[in-house]
Amino acid sequence: MKIAGDTFDPVQITFLRFIIGGLVLLPAALISMHKKNIILRSKDWVLLSVNGFVVVVIGMILFQLAVDHAKASTVAVLFSCNPVFTLVFSFLLLKEKLSKLTLISIILSIIGLLVIVNPANLTEPLGITFSLLSAVAFSIYSMISRWVSIRTGLDGLAITGFSLLIGSLELLALMLLTYLQPIVNAFSGVPALREFSDIPILAGISWGNVPLLLLAGVGNSAAAFALYFMIIESSNVSMASIPFFIKPGLAPLLAFLILSEKITVNLIAGILILLAGSLLTIYSNRTRVSPKKNNLLDT
């Protein structure tokens, strides 16, 4: 996404990746609904619309803005703290139990994030803020998706496909509004809002960057999001958070190899603390009772 941000507008690349991802997952979503004989009511579509708005319009635009205002390694690690919010939300809203080890892992994760951010010497405050807000939005998206699953019986593929597609269409509607002259005039007068005026939709697409768009849309959006919710279905929200604990160790390495970003001492120390928290989370999940007894579909 850092590379894509150098080619496309932040809002534009968010729209393109999720319209592609949503369309890729749409056939699987419709087939799943047909097999399960599920008919969605108007309230269900409202929930899916809210879900799409939260993840695409709010969460992923914030993520792309974060990538544009901070190092990719820092953004990736900070976004990985979304399980901290997810675990708390799952406890408050979905009544998932939090073991002592899970609570300790949350504390370690927070400490690790503080070490990485280093509040005493903030160098990328805007990017860091966008990253954390994006993580919160993704956590809310996870909770709404789980709620939709319990309410409708839709599987992860269907919920992901509908949410991404609807969210991208909502974003498209907002993008079209930026071409209205009153909005152009209002945004042009404010430096911070100029990039949200006349947002390009298809401009800049060429055969040379089609592979990048497919990677972002099919791999990073459709496949990754769908797999995430398939994990939730087979276990619980806590177990699905484990990949995000692995990400802090992987993302900086890839950023170093691909983007030549420097790996700082604070980043290494924070990653080690986050990995310690992830190990506790994994161990805590292994010591729980069987997934069937924890599966939220049974509650």
Rank of each mutant, 00 (worst) to 15 (best):
S142M: 12
G270N: 01
E233C: 01
D68A: 15
M175K: 05
L157Q: 01
L172G: 07
L250R: 01
V237W: 01
I246F: 09
E195R: 14
D155P: 04
T14I: 10
F244S: 12
F244V: 07
V55Q: 11
L213A: 13
A226F: 05
G156R: 01
W207E: 14
A135C: 06
V88K: 06
A137L: 03
G167F: 04
I61M: 09
M230P: 02
V77L: 04
G127T: 05
G167P: 06
Y228G: 02
Y283I: 12
S90T: 02
L30V: 14
N236Q: 09
L132K: 05
V190L: 13
S142A: 14
T129D: 00
D44W: 00
L47F: 08
T299R: 15
A222E: 03
S32H: 12
V24F: 14
T152P: 03
V84Y: 10
I20G: 10
P27V: 12
S197H: 11
L113N: 10
S32A: 11
S241N: 08
M175L: 10
W207P: 15
R17N: 13
L267M: 05
F225P: 07
F8W: 07
N236W: 05
Q64A: 10
N285C: 14
A70T: 12
S197P: 04
G204P: 06
V237C: 04
G249E: 03
F18W: 11
L259Y: 10
F130E: 03
F79V: 15
I110T: 03
D298G: 10
I205S: 03
P83V: 07
P125S: 00
V24Y: 08
S131M: 10
N118V: 09
K95A: 03
L257Y: 06
L297Y: 02
L202C: 11
T74A: 11
V24C: 12
N185V: 14
G161K: 00
L227Q: 05
T86F: 02
G249A: 03
L94C: 03
L297R: 04
N285H: 12
T129I: 07
Y283M: 13
G277C: 08
T14E: 07
G249D: 00
V75N: 06
S139N: 00
S142P: 11
A158M: 05
V237A: 00
G161Q: 09
A186S: 11
V218Y: 10
L108D: 10
S163T: 05
M60E: 15
A4Q: 11
T160R: 05
S142I: 15
I140D: 01
A276M: 10
K36P: 02
S109G: 14
G219E: 04
I263K: 06
Y179Q: 02
I111V: 15
I13D: 01
S260F: 13
K36I: 08
V77T: 07
K95R: 13
I273E: 08
L132N: 02
I111Q: 03
L122P: 01
S188H: 15
M60T: 13
L227K: 03
S90H: 02
T281D: 11
S139M: 00
M1R: 11
I38M: 06
R286Q: 13
L253T: 02
L259R: 08
V136Q: 07
P125N: 04
I38P: 09
V55F: 03
A66W: 08
R194E: 15
I232Q: 07
L169H: 09
